[in-house]
Design a protein around this nucleic acid. Structure first.
Length: 264
DNA sequence: CTCAGTGTTCAGTG
DNA sequence: TCACTGAACACTGA
């Protein structure tokens, strides 16, 4: 699930249900992979009795500001999600931590494939992983001029740059493909070869795709019908878009869906 | 049974 | 040191 729009949707879910409430109890399961540099017991101890003051996100990183540091940090990996419920019997499989709030609300972090991470952060924005991120395309979109300058100085395929979190934080595989499709740029193109018209289209497509997906609350059914997204996966996937065939190649180590007749 | 996959990290290379 | 590449990680479901 989790690229920037999905993580933003999870942030808003947690904000709606946890803000200004006190964490009464924390339940954990042992998991030496998902708990990063912290034991479940220490994670639980840091959160218990604390009041939730803010829910923050940069790129795909999410953290909570409490009334006393440290902050719990959440990274969803490929399969992470937040779930909110009130009865413990609604706790989903593969949950890693559950917060019980003082009004009976429960929120858990679920992580099926264990590529997600739970951490304690003492100064969230100043330390890794957040400190290593580039601009967040929802909150911090640079001007066309600054964006173009930053892109042109890199020597890598444009798709690899879009996936690089130290460049644009929060862009993942399908968003990179969607942005390149809408900007009509071949994903294999080297950054150094993009002209100013292409950079303008790329800048605009990045801002538009992120903004539109966030506005739809990351709900796929509410994404515009014209998006490549719908044609590439699932039972409705046609593998053509506007009558033009979608080609699948590996670019930057990832499966890449693109339309050669449109992206040059 | 095999393998791809909405992500990140780290060792190796130039 | 820096930028970049590709394998490794973990596990489910097609």
């Amino acid at each position: 699930m989790p690229e920037l729009p999905e993580v933003e949707s999870a942030r808003r879910l947690a904000e709606r249900h946890l803000l200004e409430k006190t964490i009464e109890k924390v339940h954990t399961v042992p998991d030496a992979i998902v708990y990063q540099d912290v034991t479940p017991a220490r994670f639980a101890r840091a959160l218990t009795g604390r009041k939730v003051q803010a829910l923050c996100r940069k790129g795909k990183q999410l953290w909570m500001e409490l009334d006393r540091p440290p902050s719990p940090g959440f990274h969803f990996g490929m399969t992470g999600s937040f779930h909110v419920y009130t009865s413990p019997s609604d706790r989903p499989r593969f949950w890693k931590v559950e917060l019980l709030m003082d009004d009976g609300t429960r929120l858990c972090f679920r992580n099926v494939r264990r590529l997600g991470r739970l951490r304690l952060l003492h100064d969230p924005t100043a330390e890794p992983p957040v400190s290593r991120l580039g601009f967040d395309p929802l909150y911090e979109m640079p001007s066309v001029a600054a964006f173009s300058k930053a892109v042109r100085r890199r020597a890598t395929p444009i798709k690899a740059l879009l996936l690089n979190q130290s460049f644009a934080a929060g862009v993942g595989n399908w968003i990179a493909d969607e942005v390149l499709y809408q900007a009509r740029i071949d994903p294999r193109r080297s950054c150094t070869t993009l002209d100013s018209a292409e950079l303008r289209r790329l800048h605009s497509a990045l801002g538009r795709v992120i903004h539109t997906a966030v506005k739809a609350d990351a709900d796929k059914d509410r994404f515009p019908k014209t998006w490549l997204f719908h044609a590439r996966w699932g039972k409705s996937a046609t593998h053509t878009v506007r009558g033009e065939p979608i080609q699948f190649d590996t670019v930057a180590g990832r499966t890449t869906a693109w339309v050669p007749t449109r992206q040059t």
